[in-house]
Simulated assay, not measured.
Amino acid sequence: MTALKGILAASALAGVSIFSVQPAMADGEVNIYSYRQPDLIKPLLDEFTKETGVATNVLFLDKGLVERIQAEGANSPADVILTVDIARVMEATEGGVTQPVTDNETINKDIPAQFRDPAGEWFALTTRGRVVYASKDRVEQDQITYEELADPKWKGRICIRDAQHSYNIGLIASMVAEHGEEYTETWLTGLKNNLARKPNGGDRDQAKAILAGECDIALGNTYYVGLMQTNEKEPEQKDWAAAIKVLFPNTEDRGTHVNISAMALAKNAPNKDNAVKLMEFLASGEAQKIYAEQVFEYPVMPGAEPSEIVKSFGTIKPDTLPLADIAANRKVASELVDKVGVNEGPEG
């Protein structure tokens, strides 16, 4: 059994998906393990193959990517890892499944220093804001802060997904970095008391709940708004998006918390040259434009413009807090969520 056939067999069992599969893993190919949905990166990879002649194989996993590569060991076919969150890219580096790409002029030229690991273990490609979805009908204000989410005026009016989800942990970790552990615990207690129900669903479900009148504001990522607005397969999601407006928290002070999508070179990449070639392509302005438009996110390259749909959300002022500081506070953030009992929902 070839390495690729092994992937296919294991993937069928694991419920993951592959596209652009080639007959064998030989020269002229690159293998991508991705947390990002395959249809969202396909236009990028198609363009890469068109320009370079290098074919791509993609293994998509919504969880367990790091464990998969660890189990495969030195024989892992993974060349490039694509992640959708600073927490997940840190899991990859801390899990020992990446290797550094250092002194690469092409990548370092296109990706600013604050969006790459100092040791070259990972590189951000796009950013997204963790914003507030607010009811157009029931919320008059157009500005808000994260701190305000603990204000009793929002009691019974807030919806969120699982507080332990990496998107929320990233935001909570930024609060720890900004205000300290004690403040953040008090803030989380206020947020918990303001919840309309127990945390559940995904970000899009929070917009759905706002349309249904279950809550008035919610936490969500910016890109989900674009995905809802353009969803032809499930057109009811357009109604969810139409019911909300995007509020960018803390625009008057430190700015809105942002997270990243990122890439890393796999530790035992069998097609290392092609892997670096793909990473150089993904860092380029051309690829960032395609990627950002496809996933409704913000390119990290200075001066690169987001899509018109993303611009329609409003102007984002990103928090300049280093991603490393957020990553360093993830454990504390998770412990505080459990200590406060956020996922238990509001009391009474």
Rank of each mutant, 00 (worst) to 15 (best):
A275Y: 08
L65S: 11
S76H: 12
A207Q: 06
V54A: 15
S20I: 04
V30G: 13
W240R: 15
A209R: 09
N200Q: 08
M263Y: 13
A71K: 15
E335W: 05
K198C: 13
A55W: 06
S76N: 01
I160F: 11
T52D: 02
A87V: 10
A304L: 07
D62A: 09
S334E: 12
A150E: 11
L211C: 03
Q229A: 08
L44V: 10
E344Q: 14
P118K: 10
E344D: 12
S76I: 08
G170M: 07
V80G: 10
L321K: 10
G202T: 10
I111E: 06
G129D: 05
G120T: 08
T83M: 13
E286N: 05
D62K: 14
L82Y: 06
P249L: 01
P318S: 01
W187T: 07
A262I: 01
W122G: 10
N329E: 12
D325W: 02
N57L: 10
A177T: 12
W122Y: 14
P249C: 00
I32E: 00
F60T: 02
E347L: 08
A275H: 12
K155A: 10
I69E: 04
E67Q: 13
M228G: 02
M175T: 13
E72K: 01
G303F: 01
D203V: 15
A113K: 11
E29T: 06
P112F: 15
F248S: 09
M228V: 11
V340S: 03
D62I: 04
A134C: 09
V66G: 00
G213V: 12
A327K: 03
D79N: 10
D85A: 09
V295H: 14
T251W: 04
